[in-house]
């Protein structure tokens, strides 16, 4: 696809749809989807653990541990306050350790998860706080252990809130995957950056942005539909 003639110059002035290579766009879309899918799975797992721990150890909860809560909460805040693009570069050594590479789809998963899990963890904490304390008390009265309460009460009762949190997080991850193009992550963001920005192929930029908008819309609609389906309030 390296432009070798002067058509490349022309494309910077006007729209030339012939610049679009469907195969490349398709490849980039697949890369974005796999980055999103994989990072979302790990973010959910890690974020649920963070969120449940934040909830349980906060004041007047089942496992009240003020020091632990303060430390975890502080770490979460730090990770959330670092702009993703800087975080991505800062964790490169760690990424190399975990994924064996810092580029491509595999190389983007660790920074995506490190960036999104604290965010999702906070959302989980908030969703769990919405669970009526009376229900937890009733479970305790029935002889439920703390683990029973987490598994059978908290995570179950907060499902609509958790699905909404996953939706918001997935959408955040879509924009993070776009940014990861900067460090050679691939995907739609990478495509937009390399062709649309660096080579002034505006039409590639437009197509990728439209695809990202469609992706976000689908995620939001799917999330809302799921919440409606499982909500029995």
């Amino acid at each position: 696809m390296m432009p070798t003639d002067l058509t490349y110059l022309r494309s910077s002035n006007g729209i030339d749809w012939s610049n679009i290579d469907p195969a490349e766009i398709w490849q980039a879309t697949q890369d974005t989807m796999s980055m999103l899918g994989l990072s979302l799975i790990f973010t959910i797992i890690l974020g649920l653990i963070i969120g449940v721990l934040l909830y349980l150890t906060s004041s007047r909860q089942l496992l009240y541990l003020p020091v632990f809560y303060s430390i975890l909460s502080f770490v979460v805040n730090i990770l959330r306050s670092v702009p993703f693009i800087i975080l991505m570069i800062a964790v490169m050594p760690l990424t190399k350790e975990i994924a064996g590479t810092t580029i491509g789809v595999a190389g983007t998963i660790p920074p995506l998860v490190i960036g999104a899990a604290p965010f999702f963890g906070r959302l989980v904490e908030t969703a769990l706080r919405e669970v009526d304390r009376g229900i937890i008390e009733a479970a305790q009265a029935m002889g439920a252990s703390k683990w029973d309460i987490v598994r059978r009460v908290l995570l179950r009762e907060s499902r609509p809130g958790l699905i909404a949190a996953i939706t918001v997080t997935a959408i955040t991850l879509v924009s993070y995957t776009a940014m990861s193009g900067v460090i050679g992550g691939g995907g739609l963001g990478d495509l937009a950056l390399r062709y649309g920005y660096q080579r002034f192929q505006t039409e590639v930029m437009i197509v990728t942005v439209i695809l990202l908008i469609i992706l976000v819309q689908i995620l939001q609609m799917l999330g809302d539909w799921l919440v409606r389906r499982i909500s029995h309030k």
């Binding site: 009526d132 229900i135 179950r156």
Partner: peptide, 15 residues
């Protein structure tokens, strides 16, 4: 488990 309890606001699982 041998002591049942009921509550003013019922405290049923909504889900």
């Amino acid at each position: 488990r041998k002591i049942g309890m009921i509550f003013q606001h019922f405290n049923l699982l909504a889900s």
